[in-house]
């Protein structure tokens, strides 16, 4: 049963658009342009990764072997499930089901927190073994590396790439918190669902970035 009190009673169309369809298309294009610059940002990091991986393949194999594949795989599943709950949140908003909307948005936030908690333990493990470049670098510790200098290069890339990904997730939490309050107040509904859909786009994009980071960082053999 849809909740007719969710969001505005009538669709809001700005003066400079002919109709709602044109407004939706224009805002979709705007969102994709935003995602394009985000993709270029991570693309630059991937370029650096590809360059050094081709240059020092043996270093990347050795560095990757120090990463915890189980934690990486668990995080992949966590992000995948959070993508499903986010998509379901958008669907619930579109069809006007407030209770489901709140449950799915809360689940998405909870799964995002779980991802970062796992990441925290992973980073703590690297710190413990002295594998954090510049801050705590001890390649001759428990996990000794063949070539410490080039090994530092791999871990620099690992922390920059996974760190920027985690930073994007933290930004996502900020947005999600605002959306949670707005959803609680029933500001979004069948006549106003695009903001929720675009937050979903952002969340899915963060998932896509991890889809590439997982095999490229954790599964080099």
């Amino acid at each position: 049963m849809s909740d007719v009190t969710m969001g505005p009673k009538e669709p809001i169309v700005s003066d400079h658009f002919i109709d709602r369809e044109q407004q939706n298309e224009a805002s979709h294009i705007g969102m994709w342009l935003f995602l394009a610059q985000e993709a270029m940002f991570f693309g630059g990091l991937l370029c650096a990764y590809f360059y050094y991986r081709f240059k020092y393949p043996e270093v990347f194999v050795e560095g990757s072997a120090q990463l915890n594949v189980y934690m990486g795989a668990t995080n992949t599943i966590v992000l995948l499930v959070s993508s499903v709950t986010m998509a379901m949140c958008v669907y619930s908003t579109q069809v006007g089901k407030w209770k489901q909307q709140m449950i799915y948005l809360s689940s998405t936030i909870a799964l995002g927190v779980l991802f970062l908690v796992i990441k925290w333990f992973e980073y703590a493990e690297k710190w413990h073994y002295g594998l954090v470049p510049h801050l705590n670098w001890n390649p001759h510790g428990a996990h000794s590396l063949e070539d410490p200098v080039k090994g530092e290069l791999f871990f620099s890339l690992y922390f920059i790439m996974s760190g920027m990904h985690a930073f994007h997730m933290i930004i996502g939490f900020g947005i999600a918190a605002v959306f949670w309050v707005l959803c609680w107040k029933k500001k979004f509904g069948p006549n106003m669902y695009l903001p929720v859909e675009y937050f979903g786009f952002y969340w899915h994009f963060v998932d896509i970035v991890w889809v590439f980071l997982f095999p490229l960082l954790y599964l080099i053999k």
Partner: peptide, 8 residues
């Protein structure tokens, strides 16, 4: 919805 497909 206004030409916007709602994915099942």
């Amino acid at each position: 919805h206004a030409g916007h497909f709602i994915v099942p």
